[in-house]
Simulated assay, not measured.
Amino acid sequence: MSVFQERMKELGLTMTSVQFAAMYAVKANPGIDQARLAGVIAYDRATIGGVIDRLESKGLVERRVCDHDRRARIVSLTSEGDALLDKLVPLVRDFQDDILSGLSDVERAEFLRLATKAADAGNDLSRAPLILDKKA
C-alpha cells in the first residue's frame, strides 16, 4: 500500500492520490471543466469521469453543465469537499517528508529538480499529458 493510502486509511478516509489531486486542481482552477481537469492532473480523459463520480458520491464535488458548452461539465468543490481539502493539504505536505525520509535537504531538492525535469521531458510522450498552459 502506498504511503498516501496508508495515511488516508489512518485518518479513516478512502481517498486515492488521484482523487486528492483532482480536488486540489479543482480548488486551484475555479470553473474548470472535467476534460481540462484531466489534463491539469495528467490523468486519462476517458477515466476522469469515474474519479469525479466517486468524489461526487462522497459529497465532495459537484458537476454542472457548462453555460457556453452544453457537452462540458464544470466541476467544483462542495463546502464539505473544500473543508476536507483544507484539512488534508497540510497533512499531505507533512507525509511527503516521510516519502523522502532517506534524503538530506540538499538531496531532496536535487531529487525534486531531477524528477521535475524527467516529468517535463516525458510529458509530450504521455497518453495523458499535463496541460501546462492554463488557457488550454
Rank of each mutant, 00 (worst) to 15 (best):
I99Q: 13
E107V: 08
L84Y: 02
G122V: 09
L11M: 14
A109C: 07
A72D: 12
S76G: 06
A22D: 03
L84G: 02
V92W: 03
R108G: 03
D120H: 10
A136F: 02
S101H: 05
G31A: 05
L114C: 13
D133F: 04
G50V: 07
D120A: 14
L60C: 11
L125I: 08
P129F: 02
R54S: 10
K27D: 00
D44K: 09
F20I: 06
D105Q: 15
Y24D: 02
M23P: 02
D105F: 14
I131Y: 04
V92H: 00
E62C: 12
E56I: 10
M1C: 11
L11T: 02
D69Q: 11
L130S: 05
L85F: 05
A72N: 13
A118M: 11
D94Q: 10
V92T: 01
A128C: 15
F4V: 11
A136E: 06
L125A: 13
L13E: 05
K87V: 06
A118K: 03
A22Y: 12
L77W: 01
H68S: 08
D94N: 08
S57G: 10
Q5A: 15
D133S: 05
K117P: 01
A128T: 06
S76M: 13
R73V: 02
L114T: 05
L132H: 07
E6V: 14
L91C: 05
N29Y: 05
Q5C: 15
T116S: 10
R54N: 04
A128S: 15
A119K: 07
L91Q: 03
K117V: 07
A46D: 13
K134L: 11
L130G: 02
A118D: 10
A109R: 09
V3Q: 13
D124C: 13
E80L: 10
L91K: 04
G49N: 10
R64T: 12
Y24H: 07
R54G: 01
S17I: 08
S57M: 13
L60D: 09
L103H: 07
T116M: 12
S104F: 14
S2D: 15
R71H: 08
L60T: 01
F4M: 09
A115S: 08
R36C: 06
D53V: 08
E110K: 11
D53L: 15
E10F: 12
G39Q: 01
L103T: 02
Q96R: 11
L37Y: 01
F111Q: 08
E80D: 11
Y43I: 05
V89G: 00
T14A: 15
G102A: 08
M1G: 13
L125T: 00
H68C: 09
K27Q: 04
L88K: 01
I52K: 06
Y24G: 03
L55H: 07
T116W: 10
D97C: 10
